[in-house]
Amino acid sequence: MNAATIIAIMAIAAILFFAIRYIYKEKKKGNACIGCPYADSCPKHRQNGAGCGSAAQQKINIH
């Protein structure tokens, strides 16, 4: 096992760790579409908060 291999293994592990952690965090925040190009300008971006959830809208969703 040479130095390049070790670095590569560590790099893959780090990249995957951060990618998965990011996805997990966003999902937990209630973001349905990670990295959607419309991002912040999309009302769906923050569903749990003010998102598209008006009181009226959410009432219907519950049913």
Binding site: L16, A19, Y22, I34, G35, C36, P37, A39, S41
Partner: peptide
């Protein structure tokens, strides 16, 4: 501004979802 914002999101998407899927 809106272009840069979306570009950023595109890169994030490539570096997270797409990356994990590819792996």
């Amino acid at each position: 501004k809106s272009m840069m914002e979306r570009a950023k999101a595109y890169i994030i998407k490539a570096a997270t979802i797409i990356l994990v899927c590819n792996t």
